[in-house]
Write a protein that binds this DNA or RNA. Structure first.
Lengths: 141, 141
DNA sequence: ACATTCCTGACTAAATTGGTCAAGTATAGA
DNA sequence: TCTATACTTGACCAATTTAGTCAGGAATGT
Protein backbone atom coordinates (compact mmCIF):
# COMPACT_ATOMS: atom_id res chain seq x y z
CA UNK A 1 0.00 0.00 0.00
CA UNK A 2 1.34 3.35 -0.93
CA UNK A 3 0.50 6.98 -0.86
CA UNK A 4 2.04 8.81 -3.77
CA UNK A 5 3.57 12.23 -4.07
CA UNK A 6 0.77 13.47 -6.26
CA UNK A 7 -1.69 13.40 -3.41
CA UNK A 8 0.81 14.92 -1.05
CA UNK A 9 1.63 17.71 -3.48
CA UNK A 10 -2.05 18.45 -4.00
CA UNK A 11 -2.57 18.82 -0.27
CA UNK A 12 0.53 20.96 0.14
CA UNK A 13 -0.40 23.20 -2.77
CA UNK A 14 -3.95 23.70 -1.57
CA UNK A 15 -2.77 24.47 1.94
CA UNK A 16 -0.46 27.05 0.43
CA UNK A 17 -3.37 28.45 -1.55
CA UNK A 18 -5.54 28.61 1.55
CA UNK A 19 -2.95 30.75 3.27
CA UNK A 20 -2.37 33.23 0.47
CA UNK A 21 -5.49 33.58 -1.66
CA UNK A 22 -7.46 35.84 0.66
CA UNK A 23 -7.11 38.85 -1.64
CA UNK A 24 -5.33 37.89 -4.83
CA UNK A 25 -5.17 34.72 -6.85
CA UNK A 26 -2.00 32.73 -6.36
CA UNK A 27 0.10 31.71 -9.34
CA UNK A 28 1.43 28.20 -9.67
CA UNK A 29 4.85 29.74 -10.03
CA UNK A 30 4.66 31.09 -6.48
CA UNK A 31 3.44 27.77 -5.11
CA UNK A 32 6.17 26.00 -7.02
CA UNK A 33 8.82 28.21 -5.47
CA UNK A 34 7.42 28.12 -1.95
CA UNK A 35 6.72 24.42 -1.82
CA UNK A 36 9.55 23.18 -4.02
CA UNK A 37 7.27 21.36 -6.45
CA UNK A 38 7.90 21.28 -10.20
CA UNK A 39 5.77 23.85 -12.01
CA UNK A 40 4.96 21.50 -14.85
CA UNK A 41 3.78 18.87 -12.45
CA UNK A 42 1.68 21.37 -10.53
CA UNK A 43 -0.10 22.29 -13.74
CA UNK A 44 -1.19 18.71 -14.21
CA UNK A 45 -2.42 18.52 -10.66
CA UNK A 46 -4.33 21.80 -10.80
CA UNK A 47 -6.02 20.80 -14.01
CA UNK A 48 -7.64 17.98 -12.08
CA UNK A 49 -8.41 20.12 -9.06
CA UNK A 50 -10.14 22.57 -11.35
CA UNK A 51 -12.19 19.88 -13.09
CA UNK A 52 -13.36 18.80 -9.66
CA UNK A 53 -14.36 22.33 -8.68
CA UNK A 54 -11.90 22.57 -5.85
CA UNK A 55 -10.17 25.60 -7.34
CA UNK A 56 -11.04 28.33 -9.81
CA UNK A 57 -8.57 29.76 -12.29
CA UNK A 58 -7.97 33.33 -13.34
CA UNK A 59 -5.93 33.81 -16.48
CA UNK A 60 -3.73 36.68 -17.44
CA UNK A 61 -0.94 38.68 -15.95
CA UNK A 62 -1.92 38.67 -12.32
CA UNK A 63 -3.92 35.52 -12.59
CA UNK A 64 -3.62 32.33 -10.69
CA UNK A 65 -5.81 30.01 -8.68
CA UNK A 66 -8.30 30.54 -5.89
CA UNK A 67 -10.08 28.00 -3.71
CA UNK A 68 -13.67 27.63 -4.84
CA UNK A 69 -14.85 26.68 -1.35
CA UNK A 70 -13.90 27.59 2.17
CA UNK A 71 -11.00 25.59 3.66
CA UNK A 72 -13.33 23.90 6.15
CA UNK A 73 -15.54 22.68 3.32
CA UNK A 74 -12.68 21.00 1.47
CA UNK A 75 -12.11 17.56 2.92
CA UNK A 76 -8.95 15.63 2.21
CA UNK A 77 -10.86 12.85 0.51
CA UNK A 78 -12.19 15.42 -2.00
CA UNK A 79 -8.62 16.31 -2.81
CA UNK A 80 -7.39 12.75 -3.15
CA UNK A 81 -10.37 11.80 -5.23
CA UNK A 82 -9.73 14.75 -7.54
CA UNK A 83 -6.15 13.76 -8.29
CA UNK A 84 -7.08 10.08 -8.77
CA UNK A 85 -5.34 9.11 -5.56
CA UNK A 86 -7.99 6.56 -4.76
CA UNK A 87 -7.70 3.68 -2.40
CA UNK A 88 -7.29 1.09 -5.10
CA UNK A 89 -7.72 -2.32 -3.59
CA UNK A 90 -6.56 -5.18 -5.73
CA UNK A 91 -9.76 -7.13 -5.99
CA UNK A 92 -10.15 -10.75 -6.88
CA UNK A 93 -10.90 -10.95 -10.56
CA UNK A 94 -14.33 -12.18 -11.46
CA UNK A 95 -13.03 -14.17 -14.41
CA UNK A 96 -10.86 -16.26 -12.13
CA UNK A 97 -11.81 -19.91 -12.19
CA UNK A 98 -10.88 -20.46 -8.58
CA UNK A 99 -12.22 -18.53 -5.65
CA UNK A 100 -14.46 -15.55 -6.17
CA UNK A 101 -17.07 -16.32 -8.75
CA UNK A 102 -20.34 -15.69 -7.02
CA UNK A 103 -20.64 -19.27 -5.89
CA UNK A 104 -20.71 -20.44 -2.30
CA UNK A 105 -16.91 -20.48 -2.15
CA UNK A 106 -16.10 -16.80 -2.03
CA UNK A 107 -12.50 -16.05 -1.30
CA UNK A 108 -11.84 -14.80 2.20
CA UNK A 109 -10.50 -11.44 1.12
CA UNK A 110 -13.59 -10.64 -0.92
CA UNK A 111 -15.04 -8.06 1.45
CA UNK A 112 -11.91 -7.17 3.34
CA UNK A 113 -10.74 -4.40 1.06
CA UNK A 114 -14.16 -2.84 0.98
CA UNK A 115 -14.11 -2.62 4.74
CA UNK A 116 -10.66 -1.10 4.68
CA UNK A 117 -11.66 1.45 2.07
CA UNK A 118 -14.52 2.58 4.25
CA UNK A 119 -12.16 2.82 7.18
CA UNK A 120 -9.60 4.93 5.36
CA UNK A 121 -12.17 7.15 3.75
CA UNK A 122 -13.70 7.93 7.11
CA UNK A 123 -10.31 9.24 8.15
CA UNK A 124 -10.03 11.54 5.16
CA UNK A 125 -13.66 12.61 5.27
CA UNK A 126 -13.29 13.93 8.77
CA UNK A 127 -10.21 15.99 7.98
CA UNK A 128 -10.50 19.31 6.18
CA UNK A 129 -7.91 21.66 4.78
CA UNK A 130 -8.67 23.99 7.67
CA UNK A 131 -7.99 21.26 10.22
CA UNK A 132 -4.64 20.67 8.62
CA UNK A 133 -3.67 24.33 8.77
CA UNK A 134 -4.76 24.60 12.39
CA UNK A 135 -2.71 21.58 13.37
CA UNK A 136 0.26 23.07 11.63
CA UNK A 137 -0.03 26.37 13.45
CA UNK A 138 -0.39 24.56 16.77
CA UNK A 139 2.74 22.55 16.14
CA UNK A 140 4.72 25.68 15.47
CA UNK A 141 3.92 27.15 18.86
CA UNK B 1 -2.72 4.46 -2.58
CA UNK B 2 -2.79 0.84 -3.47
CA UNK B 3 -3.01 -2.56 -1.92
CA UNK B 4 -1.10 -5.06 -3.96
CA UNK B 5 -1.82 -8.66 -4.79
CA UNK B 6 1.05 -9.89 -2.69
CA UNK B 7 -0.72 -8.98 0.53
CA UNK B 8 -3.99 -10.38 -0.71
CA UNK B 9 -2.37 -13.64 -1.77
CA UNK B 10 -0.65 -13.94 1.60
CA UNK B 11 -3.96 -13.58 3.39
CA UNK B 12 -5.71 -16.02 1.07
CA UNK B 13 -2.94 -18.59 1.38
CA UNK B 14 -2.83 -18.37 5.16
CA UNK B 15 -6.58 -18.66 5.39
CA UNK B 16 -6.31 -21.77 3.25
CA UNK B 17 -3.60 -23.09 5.55
CA UNK B 18 -5.72 -22.40 8.62
CA UNK B 19 -8.48 -24.53 7.21
CA UNK B 20 -6.39 -27.51 6.22
CA UNK B 21 -3.35 -27.79 8.48
CA UNK B 22 -5.10 -29.30 11.49
CA UNK B 23 -3.42 -32.67 10.99
CA UNK B 24 -0.97 -32.57 8.13
CA UNK B 25 1.22 -29.85 6.70
CA UNK B 26 -0.14 -28.26 3.55
CA UNK B 27 2.00 -28.09 0.41
CA UNK B 28 2.24 -24.93 -1.62
CA UNK B 29 1.17 -26.98 -4.59
CA UNK B 30 -2.20 -27.62 -2.97
CA UNK B 31 -2.66 -24.00 -2.04
CA UNK B 32 -1.65 -22.98 -5.53
CA UNK B 33 -4.31 -25.23 -7.03
CA UNK B 34 -7.07 -24.35 -4.61
CA UNK B 35 -6.51 -20.59 -4.62
CA UNK B 36 -5.35 -20.16 -8.19
CA UNK B 37 -2.08 -18.49 -7.25
CA UNK B 38 1.18 -19.15 -9.10
CA UNK B 39 3.32 -21.69 -7.26
CA UNK B 40 6.53 -19.79 -7.92
CA UNK B 41 5.05 -16.63 -6.53
CA UNK B 42 3.72 -18.43 -3.47
CA UNK B 43 7.22 -19.65 -2.72
CA UNK B 44 8.49 -16.09 -2.55
CA UNK B 45 5.64 -15.11 -0.27
CA UNK B 46 6.07 -18.07 2.08
CA UNK B 47 9.77 -17.44 2.39
CA UNK B 48 8.90 -14.12 3.96
CA UNK B 49 6.13 -15.56 6.10
CA UNK B 50 8.58 -18.11 7.42
CA UNK B 51 11.23 -15.51 8.20
CA UNK B 52 8.62 -13.68 10.22
CA UNK B 53 7.65 -16.82 12.15
CA UNK B 54 4.12 -16.89 10.86
CA UNK B 55 4.51 -20.34 9.36
CA UNK B 56 6.82 -23.30 9.86
CA UNK B 57 8.07 -25.47 7.05
CA UNK B 58 8.42 -29.23 6.90
CA UNK B 59 10.55 -30.55 4.07
CA UNK B 60 10.32 -33.85 2.31
CA UNK B 61 7.72 -35.95 0.66
CA UNK B 62 4.69 -35.16 2.74
CA UNK B 63 6.03 -31.83 3.84
CA UNK B 64 4.50 -28.44 3.52
CA UNK B 65 3.71 -25.50 5.74
CA UNK B 66 1.94 -25.16 9.07
CA UNK B 67 0.86 -22.07 10.97
CA UNK B 68 3.24 -21.40 13.82
CA UNK B 69 0.53 -19.71 15.89
CA UNK B 70 -3.19 -20.12 16.34
CA UNK B 71 -5.38 -18.33 13.80
CA UNK B 72 -6.66 -15.95 16.44
CA UNK B 73 -3.11 -14.93 17.29
CA UNK B 74 -2.21 -14.02 13.74
CA UNK B 75 -3.35 -10.49 13.03
CA UNK B 76 -3.61 -9.15 9.52
CA UNK B 77 -1.02 -6.49 10.18
CA UNK B 78 1.48 -9.25 11.06
CA UNK B 79 0.84 -10.75 7.65
CA UNK B 80 1.11 -7.50 5.73
CA UNK B 81 4.23 -6.52 7.60
CA UNK B 82 5.81 -9.87 6.79
CA UNK B 83 5.34 -9.54 3.05
CA UNK B 84 6.52 -5.91 3.03
CA UNK B 85 3.04 -4.65 2.36
CA UNK B 86 3.54 -1.63 4.56
CA UNK B 87 1.71 1.60 4.43
CA UNK B 88 4.44 3.42 2.62
CA UNK B 89 3.71 7.08 2.81
CA UNK B 90 5.71 9.27 0.53
CA UNK B 91 7.35 11.49 3.08
CA UNK B 92 8.79 14.90 2.51
CA UNK B 93 12.49 14.44 1.93
CA UNK B 94 14.71 15.86 4.58
CA UNK B 95 17.22 17.05 2.02
CA UNK B 96 14.60 19.26 0.42
CA UNK B 97 15.50 22.91 0.64
CA UNK B 98 11.92 24.03 0.94
CA UNK B 99 9.47 22.89 3.53
CA UNK B 100 10.34 20.14 5.93
CA UNK B 101 13.77 20.69 7.36
CA UNK B 102 13.20 20.81 11.08
CA UNK B 103 12.77 24.55 11.05
CA UNK B 104 9.67 26.40 12.11
CA UNK B 105 8.16 26.01 8.66
CA UNK B 106 7.25 22.35 8.62
CA UNK B 107 5.19 21.34 5.65
CA UNK B 108 1.56 20.73 6.44
CA UNK B 109 1.60 17.08 5.44
CA UNK B 110 4.47 16.26 7.73
CA UNK B 111 2.44 14.41 10.35
CA UNK B 112 -0.56 13.52 8.23
CA UNK B 113 0.74 10.21 6.94
CA UNK B 114 1.81 9.14 10.38
CA UNK B 115 -1.71 9.66 11.60
CA UNK B 116 -3.09 7.70 8.69
CA UNK B 117 -0.69 4.86 9.28
CA UNK B 118 -1.85 4.59 12.86
CA UNK B 119 -5.43 4.62 11.69
CA UNK B 120 -4.95 1.86 9.13
CA UNK B 121 -2.84 -0.27 11.42
CA UNK B 122 -5.50 -0.15 14.07
CA UNK B 123 -7.85 -1.69 11.54
CA UNK B 124 -5.48 -4.53 10.75
CA UNK B 125 -4.43 -5.08 14.34
CA UNK B 126 -7.97 -5.78 15.38
CA UNK B 127 -8.55 -8.34 12.66
CA UNK B 128 -7.14 -11.85 12.97
CA UNK B 129 -7.06 -14.74 10.56
CA UNK B 130 -9.74 -16.40 12.66
CA UNK B 131 -12.03 -13.40 12.36
CA UNK B 132 -11.66 -13.54 8.62
CA UNK B 133 -12.57 -17.20 8.45
CA UNK B 134 -15.58 -16.69 10.69
CA UNK B 135 -16.85 -13.86 8.56
CA UNK B 136 -16.46 -16.01 5.53
CA UNK B 137 -18.45 -18.86 7.01
CA UNK B 138 -21.18 -16.48 8.10
CA UNK B 139 -21.50 -15.08 4.63
CA UNK B 140 -21.94 -18.53 3.19
CA UNK B 141 -24.95 -19.24 5.35
C1' DA C 1 2.68 44.36 -28.36
C1' DC C 2 4.12 41.55 -24.82
C1' DA C 3 4.83 39.42 -20.48
C1' DT C 4 2.40 36.59 -17.56
C1' DT C 5 -0.25 32.81 -16.45
C1' DC C 6 -3.28 29.12 -17.32
C1' DC C 7 -4.16 25.00 -20.56
C1' DT C 8 -3.10 20.62 -22.87
C1' DG C 9 -0.95 16.72 -24.88
C1' DA C 10 3.03 13.96 -25.75
C1' DC C 11 6.91 11.92 -24.05
C1' DT C 12 10.26 9.50 -20.73
C1' DA C 13 13.42 7.47 -17.01
C1' DA C 14 13.08 4.97 -12.97
C1' DA C 15 10.75 2.13 -9.79
C1' DT C 16 7.42 -1.35 -8.65
C1' DT C 17 4.61 -5.36 -9.44
C1' DG C 18 3.57 -9.82 -10.47
C1' DG C 19 5.24 -12.95 -11.93
C1' DT C 20 8.74 -16.99 -14.51
C1' DC C 21 12.88 -19.90 -14.71
C1' DA C 22 16.56 -22.61 -13.09
C1' DA C 23 19.11 -24.90 -9.88
C1' DG C 24 19.59 -26.31 -5.83
C1' DT C 25 18.75 -29.02 -0.66
C1' DA C 26 16.21 -31.95 2.62
C1' DT C 27 13.36 -35.74 3.69
C1' DA C 28 9.99 -39.71 3.55
C1' DG C 29 8.92 -43.84 1.75
C1' DA C 30 9.65 -47.84 -1.45
C1' DT D 1 19.79 -46.50 -1.49
C1' DC D 2 17.00 -44.51 -4.94
C1' DT D 3 13.53 -41.38 -6.08
C1' DA D 4 9.68 -38.41 -5.87
C1' DT D 5 8.07 -34.68 -3.29
C1' DA D 6 8.43 -30.30 -1.49
C1' DC D 7 10.94 -26.50 0.42
C1' DT D 8 14.97 -22.87 -0.71
C1' DT D 9 17.18 -19.36 -3.18
C1' DG D 10 18.64 -16.28 -6.67
C1' DA D 11 18.30 -14.37 -11.16
C1' DC D 12 15.57 -12.61 -14.57
C1' DC D 13 11.63 -10.25 -17.10
C1' DA D 14 7.37 -7.76 -19.12
C1' DA D 15 3.89 -4.60 -18.00
C1' DT D 16 2.40 -0.84 -15.41
C1' DT D 17 2.78 3.24 -12.63
C1' DT D 18 5.02 7.37 -10.99
C1' DA D 19 6.92 11.62 -11.16
C1' DG D 20 8.11 14.17 -13.68
C1' DT D 21 9.93 17.04 -18.49
C1' DC D 22 9.08 19.33 -22.89
C1' DA D 23 6.73 21.95 -26.19
C1' DG D 24 3.41 24.60 -27.73
C1' DG D 25 -0.88 27.25 -27.32
C1' DA D 26 -4.63 30.44 -25.59
C1' DA D 27 -6.29 34.17 -22.65
C1' DT D 28 -5.64 38.50 -20.33
C1' DG D 29 -3.76 42.62 -17.90
C1' DT D 30 -0.59 46.56 -18.64
Amino acid sequence: MKLTSKGRYAVMALADLAQFDSINPVSLRDISLRQGISLDYLEQIFLKLKKNQIVKSIRGTHGGYVLSKKPNEIKLNNIFYAVDEKVKTVQCKKESKKGCNGKATKCVTHNLWDELETHINSFFEKKSLEDLLKENIERRI
